[in-house]
Amino acid sequence: MTRLAPTFAALKSDNRAGFVAYVMAGDPDADTTLKMMQGLADKGADVLELGVPFTDPMADGPTIQRAAIRALEGGTTLKGVLALVKRFRETHMDTPVVLMGYANPFFAYGFEDFARDAAAAGADGVICVDIPPEEDTELRSALEGQGLSFVRLAAPTTDDKRLPQVVAHTSGFVYYVSTTGVTGAGSGATGDIEAAVARVRAASGLPVAVGFGVKTPERATEIGKVADAVVVGSAIVDALATDGVDQALHLAGSLADAAHSAR
């Protein structure tokens, strides 16, 4: 079992919304990312999403695109990303880490090798943006073989007919994309999100984290009232790029507090 289940179980028994924080691995270098990961966990992030950079991130907006380019220009490789997870585990044993990226770097590494090395490094799960259920057999069985969670995305376009298929082999939690669009754009209407979260929760029996477009503590509070966790990515990445680690962590702290005290 991964660290995800106990983390969400604890949140549930406290009746608190969780805070999931995203950071791009290697943006702009590994040491900065490690500082961010440690700081995010210390500021109250319940789960870390560690972005794996890719040259062609088709579901990401400009902020995360640019972060990926910075990471790649700094020489970040998938091996380097896994090394970061390992270093993070030297100080933080309990905070779950989910790797989020696109299929080709995982495929190039070899799904089996990737799953083995990710598990050994101390990762808990993987989100692969461009592998829908129709194409997931190989990656999923590799991850399952190593006891890693395969976290799935559900979208506003995922209708009731399709939803069971989407959540069928998910574990850990389901990531609900709050709006049609790329990361960093606006987020959907709260009422719609509340209904969607209920739908996804019922279909999956899993906690539902809501992301895409959450940028402020106010918005994190609104989402935290209806979702099991709030995911913030672009706002943190942006703060890091423009104002540095301290400011980014300051923002993350206020987002964590907002999510935790939403209810």
Partner: peptide
């Protein structure tokens, strides 16, 4: 039926686009 030409092809897109 899955859009495969041997091992190639398929539908590797984000969930938002899958229904489309």
């Amino acid at each position: 039926a899955e859009g495969r030409f041997g091992q190639f092809g398929g539908r590797y897109v984000a969930e938002t686009l899958m229904p489309n």
